[in-house]
Design a protein around this nucleic acid. Sequence first.
DNA 1: ATATTTTTTTAGACAAGTCTAAAACATATT
DNA 2: AATATGTTTTAGACTTGTCTAAAAAAATAT
Lengths: 218, 218
Amino acid sequence: MVTQSEENYLKAIYHLGKQGSISVSTNAIAEKMTTKASSVTDMLKKLAEKELVDYKKYQGVSLTKEGKIIAANVVRKHRLWEVFLVEKLNFSWNEVHDIAEQLEHIKSQKLINELDAFLGLPTHDPHGDPIPDREGNLQKSQKIFLSQVNPSVNCSCVGVKDSSDNFLKYLDKNSIAIGTAIQVLTKEAFDESMTIKINNSELTISKEIASNMYVKIN
Amino acid sequence: MVTQSEENYLKAIYHLGKQGSISVSTNAIAEKMTTKASSVTDMLKKLAEKELVDYKKYQGVSLTKEGKIIAANVVRKHRLWEVFLVEKLNFSWNEVHDIAEQLEHIKSQKLINELDAFLGLPTHDPHGDPIPDREGNLQKSQKIFLSQVNPSVNCSCVGVKDSSDNFLKYLDKNSIAIGTAIQVLTKEAFDESMTIKINNSELTISKEIASNMYVKIN
DNA sequence: ATATTTTTTTAGACAAGTCTAAAACATATT
DNA sequence: AATATGTTTTAGACTTGTCTAAAAAAATAT
Ligand SMILES: [Mn+2]
Ligand SMILES: [Mn+2]
Ligand SMILES: [Mn+2]
Ligand SMILES: [Mn+2]
């Protein structure tokens, strides 16, 4: 049996180490999980004991095959539940993460398979991140920077890179939120600034802005 | 914050004590939760400290107003999730309880309200047990014994009182399972035996049988 | 009214998960 | 190569929830 806490650690290692293949540092895990490095060390020993991670003192840690499968499954559950909350229960993007953080630990293979089918076998979560399949395989992420979108293409906002107050206020002021439909009108060759259309009103944004917004092509 | 374990204890007291009003014994809780009486005592002290139960040594325990609200809410979540699993995810009766046992602990008021609406504000779970409303108020149970059903009424099986192997085998042999539609044809005044129709075939059952099957009127 | 049995509580222990403070190790700087 | 800085581990402690064994209280039987 793998505990809720163990699952959270495996997931953190998975995310930090590009699906768990790259070795991850104790401090990086501690920061991601807002816990202390000493607690991480304790847990790494436990996970190594269970052969879910490869761990040698001072050498960082990576997931074993078994660990990777478990982590991918937790991510799969997390993202499927996020789809459920947004598509079926009218949640908006910013509300789903904390609840999915809990739901991802519910243990029932049948539940997750049925949920998957019920949602129409989605490949990506509401943020455009790919949902691992039953074997843990990932498709490419669907989210790209707005700055990479070509003129006349329609897309919608799925997230931000910079989540500073200043930036979020700027977005709010211009009525850009998660889910907002955006059409790219023009792209200036000189400074890569763009004009975009939102709710039928035009807006000019700098490259700075465009390269801090994640969008998904519609 | 009330922990998962505390919620499980509150729920047990709620169920054992007719919505928590009646005083419940330590041993009864221990048996229901398949744990030891000493563990129960430990937990009762903790819950009393938090003013969720009224507890005096050797005197049994009952829920406070606050404890009752929490317990009813856990039951509400449990039963709503059971409806979800059966109605939306094609689970059958016997598969849902263990999963609901986990899902009932997910913390989000909005989640449960949205789920409730999504399911069409159900008043009863798949076993015919009532779902407490937001204030914790209960409707009457919809389940009655088959023996109480009058001739020519249509109902469906929602559970059993006696769950011994012998009885379950008997039901199986006669293709009676949870959800099976049953029409009462006749009721013998002398011994209260009945003839019932199941899947277009007739069956005669004793009062013994009929008073061990729970049904819900359609 | 006493003795016996059952129930409940206490005492002491353990595992999981966390923390702080100190020690050990690794890396970067001079 | 020696020192300083930063990272990681260890040591020891604490909380939560559980257990066994023994003591205390309550209920039942004689
Ligand atoms: Mn998320
Ligand atoms: Mn989580
Ligand atoms: Mn149930
Ligand atoms: Mn539970």
